[in-house]
Design a protein around this nucleic acid. Structure first.
Lengths: 95, 95
DNA sequence: CGCTTATATGAACACTTGCTCAGATATTCA
DNA sequence: TGAATATCTGAGCAAGTGTTCATATAAGCG
């Protein structure tokens, strides 16, 4: 495996390796949501959600769309959701 | 998704979210190796490898077997390798 | 037993991370 | 325009992370 591939792999997993981001992505797996609804569903402050969304947007895992005062976010990387799903079956089998 | 599942998912991804650990798991994907060979293949100091191997062993991702002065490590979780493989195709398609 | 080699371990340190808080920006509506 | 609402942003901080270094443990061998 090339050094670049190692870095990219680790970076991908690192983004998924945080409970808040997992919650956010899970919330978005049901469809587009505005920031305040993500915050409510994930149980995180709106500021913290906003910070994380910026990170996720930077990594092209989510995309945003403004509608008036609201900004809607949606998943923008089907592979990531596949990874989440596969890992979920893993942790469920494990315990 | 339950709170426990979120925690378990994030923990699983967090372990994979470090270049050294990715390199170690990649080295082991070819089969059982002793600590010094893992260190040489992954390009990490033996001490650092030992620390990471303890973590990986604690999470049941690898298992160890002593043979004289050597300790051989091997992958102990096929799901994790599947995750690595799937993520690898992801990062390759992405760029 | 002493010497050597392989691995494990603990402390210390630099660096990163995710949060909160305060304030900025953007948009709508009266 | 001014007030209200939604989101974003930067600074600061407490907690966590991965490494190195020194040392400990374990096993083989003379």
């Amino acid at each position: 495996m090339s050094g670049h591939a190692v870095q990219a792999l680790a970076e991908t997993f690192r983004v998924l390796g945080d409970p808040s981001r997992v919650r956010i992505l899970d919330a978005l797996s049901g469809g587009e949501l505005c920031v305040c609804d993500i915050a409510a569903l994930a149980g995180i402050s709106e500021s913290a959600v906003s910070h994380q969304l910026r990170l996720l947007r930077g990594m092209r895992l989510v995309r945003s769309r403004r509608a008036g005062r609201l900004v809607f976010y949606a998943l923008d990387d089907q592979h990531i959701i596949e990874l989440l799903r596969q890992a979920l079956t893993h942790v469920e089998e494990q315990s």
